[in-house]
Structure formats: structure tokens, C-alpha cells
Design a protein around this nucleic acid. Structure first.
Lengths: 193, 193
DNA sequence: TTTTTCTGTTGATATATGTCAACTAATAAT
DNA sequence: ATTATTAGTTGACATATATCAACAGAAAAA
């Protein structure tokens, strides 16, 4: 999903520069520290963020009240709790900074205004959802069909940056395995390569 | 997702009856038999279907070349291989009938024409993607965080119709467990209730 | 720097789920 | 109705992964 904003801006530019101007007026900037929450559990996701720098984790509570990670976002990624944002309802998905971050963001209402006003913006938004859906589907297939080793291989292959940047305990949580199991899997790979 | 088409038509009606008319002109009808394929692996998904009657399974091949189910669709559901349909590329996801089906369908090109022509249709399409995304996300969370028992409980609670209608071997495949394990889980529930 | 906290590793053991095989029940084909 | 095929059950055993505990290394705080 890297530098997706760039693509979006490019596509919007084909509509009119007016959209870009209006988008630019709505975009705000912020810096937050590691450990801070971009979105707390049960809050409503009022913004859509873009990561200029840093990493975040998305997490939910399991039935037993234990946190587990659902995804990670890095530089160039768009960050949003999709359900909460589009429905403007309290979120099950929290978002926490794993590193200090520099972020751009746009509010729900500003984005909806732009989408309502510019057909081109709506088209881009629709295609963005399609794209995100496809990525999510891919991840679901892997989770459904793979052993722990295969899942880790998939991550190394498809999202090497995540493997490099995100602490192992968080990756283990995402993969649905313990950090001990992940450590043992990594050991195997270290021997072979 | 039951009777989603009804909702869609309702929302489109708020746009203009013209859309409904045009949609109706594009919709075709077909009946297929159990075991037939709605979409073969590596084909391009050229249609979006709506199930009037029957059930289907969606499946992909795992890395080891074994089929596993990714989802099921029932009466009232919209059926489409999202990635293949929206990108018009060969599909990894096959769709096979588990029962004789009566289907309505619209071709990719007809649908795109309508979306391009009517803003309202694009809005509905965008919202549909958001909704599908949210459902998919929910399923991914369950797959990531749950034991076999919890997954089965989730299915019973959230998609009881699937549990009732779809053969156990197919459900087991979807849950990422063997039919033997599913049989043992079901036995536990049978004792308690 | 020193201490404390967080992150990752390793071993021993427990548990959940898979595999294989044999069987029964249900469904489809003849 | 009879046979063949498919779906589901059960038991014995194998394997993958979890749990618990102890420790080592790295990062953050004092």
C-alpha cells in the first residue's frame, strides 16, 4: 500500500485542480509519540490519516478480553478504522503508535463533503475501497489456509517492511501465534539463510 | 447480507426510476445445477450474480494445491469474485453451486456503464464495497483470534443459515479445520443443548 | 552509567488439532 | 429398491502450537 496518497492525488488531478486545492485546505498535520493512541477503543473514528513517518498497529479485543493485532501501517499508508469511520460508530479497533509519527489527516465530514461535491472524488473513494477489500481478502485467505510457518513466509514475502520494522511480539499477535512459536520459526529460517 | 438487492433497489429508486429501468434491462436470469461452476479458477469474473434460490461456495487453492472454501452465499446474497470482477483479471477464487440455483446477473460492462452514467449508482456501489469490507474484516478478526470452537460458535451465532444449509465438510474447510475436528466440536454442543 | 522495563530466546511439558483408518448414515445414481 | 457415492462419526496416535518458567539482550528511564 506504499505511497498510495501519491497515486490518489494523481488520479484526482485528472478531475480538476480544484479538488486538490480543496483537499489541501482540509488536510491537517500532527506529530504524536510512540505509545499514544490514534484511536481509542469505543471512540468514533473521526479522521482518516496518512503516515508521513512512523508505524502504528491496529488491534481489537478477543472474546476473552485479550488484545490482538489486526494489522500494521507504515510510511505512505492510509490509516483508518474502516467500519467506525464510514459508519461513524464506536470502534472495536484501536490504533496505537509503535513509533513516533508524523501524520496528515482529514476529518470525516470534510472528506464526505469533497466526495459529495466532486464525482471524481467519489470514484477514487470507491476504487480505494475495492483495493482495500482485495488486500484484506488476501490476508484472510492466508489466515484461513496456512500454518504458522506459511503465514510468516507470506509476511516476509509480501510485507517485508513490516517484518523489519514491527517488534516480533506484535507480529506474533497478528499471526495468531505466541511470541515463543514465532521465535522458533525465525530460528529455522536463520539456519537456512 | 440477506436481501441486499432489495435494499439496493430501494436506494437506487431515490435516484430516479430511470436507473431501475436500465438495471432491469441489463439483468438476465439463469438456472444452474448443483456441482456446476459459476466461475472456474483462472477465468475472469464477467458477471455479478444475485441468488434467488440455492447456495454456492467460494474456494481457492492453498499453497499445497488443496482446495479450501473462503465463503458461502445463500438466497438474497450478491455473488462476485471481487478482485477478478473489479480488476477484470483471472480469478484465484472459484465459485461452485452446492445446490441447484436460480440466479439473476448483470455483466461487468453493463454495470460499469450504469455506474458511469448515474452518480447514484456509483454511490450505491461505493457503499456496497464499504459494507462488504466491514463484513470481511469481521471474518478476518474471528479467524485471527479464535480457537476452532470459538470460530464455530461465531458461525452459529452470526450465520446460522450457513450452518443449517452447508455440508459440514465444506464448513470445516472454511474454518480451517478438518471435518473430524468439526464433528467433535458439534458433539460437544449436542450434549449441552 | 545504572537500573528498570520491554522484547526475544530456550527448554520442559500440556493441549488442541491433524492424520489415518474403519465404520455408519445419508444422498444420489442405476 | 438396490447399489454406489458422498458425508459424517469415532478411536488411536502423531504433530503443531500453547503454556509456563527461567533467562538474556535491548531499549528506555532514572
Amino acid at each position: 500500500m506504499n505511497n498510495y496518497l501519491y497515486e490518489i492525488v494523481n488520479e484526482l488531478r485528472n478531475g480538476s485542480d480544484e479538488i486538490i486545492d480543496e483537499l489541501q485546505n482540509c488536510l491537517k498535520q500532527t506529530s504524536l509519540k510512540k505509545g499514544e493512541k490514534l484511536l481509542a477503543l469505543n471512540a468514533v473514528c473521526k479522521n482518516l490519516w496518512f503516515i508521513k513517518k512512523g508505524t502504528v498497529r491496529h488491534y481489537v479485543l478477543s472474546t476473552k478480553g485479550k488484545e490482538f493485532n489486526t494489522w500494521f501501517s507504515l510510511e505512505g499508508d492510509i490509516v483508518v478504522a474502516v467500519k467506525s469511520f464510514f459508519e461513524q460508530t464506536p470502534t472495536r479497533e484501536g490504533i496505537e503508535l509503535l513509533e513516533d509519527c508524523e501524520l496528515l489527516y482529514i476529518s470525516y465530514s470534510d472528506l464526505q463533503k469533497i466526495i459529495a461535491k466532486y464525482r471524481k472524488a467519489e470514484t477514487v473513494s470507491r476504487k480505494m475501497m475495492e483495493r482495500y477489500y482485495i488486500l484484506l481478502e488476501e490476508r484472510l485467505y492466508v489466515m484461513q489456509s496456512s500454518t504458522a510457518i506459511e503465514k510468516y513466509e507470506y509476511m516476509m514475502h509480501t510485507y517485508p517492511e513490516i517484518i523489519r520494522r514491527i517488534p516480533q511480539n506484535h507480529i506474533a499477535s497478528y499471526l495468531g501465534i505466541t511470541k515463543e512459536t514465532l521465535s522458533r520459526i525465525r530460528k529455522k529460517f536463520a539456519v537456512n539463510y
